[in-house]
Structures are given as C-alpha cells and as structure tokens.
C-alpha cells in the first residue's frame, strides 16, 4: 500500500450557532496517498471548506482524528503546528494572499525565512522557484503590479518554498479567468508530477477534474463518492451531455 500522507478517521465538526448546534461534517474517513492530485468537490455549504481546513491543520475536529504524515494534528502544540504549516504544507488561496508590502521574491522567500534559511540561500532558491513559474523577470515587482494570474503563480512558488509534502489549494482558480485558471491548473499538475508533491484542492471548477487522480465528492457533510481517474472521464461525459 502506498504511504498515506493524510488520513482522517470519522471526523465530525459542529459549530455552535446561538442555541442550536450545526453539524457541518458528519463523519468523514478518507485516506490520501502521497504524490496524488486530489480534488474535493461539492456545492457551497456542503462542508467542503471545513474538511479542507481540517486536512490543512487550520482547524481541529470536534471528534475523530486527522493524521498528517501519520501525526495526529490534535496532539500538536502551537510550535509544532507552526512547523507543520511551514515545512509540510504549502497553502494556495483563492484570493492569492500575497503580502502586499513585499516584492514577489520576498513573498516567495518569507516561508524560508520562517524556516530559518539564510538570506543568500533563500534568495537563490526563491529565484529558482520564480523561474519555474515563469516570473523570474518580475521578481522585484509588488503584488499590486502583477496580474491575477501572475500573483497566483507567485503564490504557487511560495507554496513550494520549503519543499512541502502537501499543497493545499483553496479554489485556486476561483478569481481567475478561464485561460489563466487553466494555466494555474497545468502548473500545479506539473509541479505535482515533477516534485512528487501531493496536491489537494477544494474547488467547483470542472477544469480541475481533467488533471485529478482522484475526486472526492462531498455532499451534506458526508462523502458522496470517491472517483478514481479512470472512472472520471465517464462522469465528465455525462455532465457534458446535460
């Protein structure tokens, strides 16, 4: 069996809304193996984002367990969680979330700085990453001087800064037009293949399906179905026919 990078066992999550309790996740167990490209799909309000935040170590389950690289996230203290977020996981956001006061290169090297990498090495590796995403010419530009697609490319480079095991992408194409969105998807897929990094993305962009190894459909706080790549084409076909 392949090594499981993320494993959840019977995860539930409830939120207290005034008097009543809202159960967002109703028992989710899944295993994600290393190096795959996973899409989590589901309508808004399905609990997709909540599950996604659990997997990313950003939120703790009400019951059940989340293991990242076989470590129980609930057992970690603040320092260990910070280490996990810095070294193991790379985050990509729908709204890009580059630090507005920093240049592209500084944004890419920031996680390395947090990880304790020296300036020279960080700059060198940062430039290399920017080159891989095709933005080495614009390293000294601020995010406000870059287009949406370019900002997201910088964000991809930043997510790869500390060679993480997992890249978590939350609707990475949500704020981009069709072509630019496709470019980012291709870039993510390419990074996943070249670097063997596990990509997990929450999305309702059907373009994502074409590159995914596995699609997890969430509906009403439960796993609706999990489809592998070979089964996928069929269901995409049916969607197209509608």
């Amino acid at each position: 069996m392949e090594h499981a990078i993320v494993r959840t066992t019977d995860v539930t999550k409830s939120f207290q809304l005034g008097d009543h309790t809202l159960e967002v996740l109703k028992g989710i167990s899944l295993t994600i193996s290393t190096g795959r490209y996973i899409s989590i799909m589901g309508p808004s309000g399905s609990g997709k984002s909540t599950l996604f935040n659990m997997i990313g170590g950003l939120d703790k389950p009400t019951s059940g367990k989340v293991f990242i690289d076989e470590v129980d996230v609930a057992q970690l203290d603040a320092y260990e969680l910070a280490w996990l977020r810095c070294r193991k996981i790379g985050y990509i956001f729908q709204t890009f979330n580059l630090i507005p006061v920093m240049t592209a290169l500084e944004n890419v090297t920031l996680p390395m700085t947090f990880a304790g990498t020296g300036s020279d090495e960080a700059n060198e590796r940062g430039m290399e990453l920017l080159k891989q995403v095709g933005l080495d010419q614009r390293y000294h530009h601020k995010p406000s001087e870059l287009s949406g697609g370019q900002q997201q490319r910088v964000a991809v480079a930043r997510a790869l800064a500390n060679t993480p095991a997992i890249i978590l992408a939350d609707e990475p194409t949500g704020n981009l037009d069709l072509t630019t969105g496709e470019e980012i998807i291709t870039l993510l897929k390419q990074m996943s293949i070249e670097r063997g990094v596990t990509v997990i993305s929450a999305t309702h962009d059907f373009k994502m399906l074409n590159v995914s190894d596995e699609v997890i459909w969430i509906r009403d706080g439960r796993i609706d179905k999990i489809e592998q790549r070979d089964e996928l084409n069929i269901s995409v076909g049916t969607i197209d026919e509608k």
Binding site: A78, A82, Y91, F93, I99, F114
Partner: peptide
C-alpha cells in the same frame, strides 16, 4: 487580517 492569517499559514508563531 488576511496578511496576518497568511503569515500564520506560512509558519509565523503568535509571538512573531
């Protein structure tokens, strides 16, 4: 808030 949240995702501790 977004900048602070992002920094924390990138590994910044509370005290940083």
């Amino acid at each position: 808030f977004r900048e602070i949240g992002t920094m924390k995702c990138l590994g910044a501790l509370d005290r940083v």
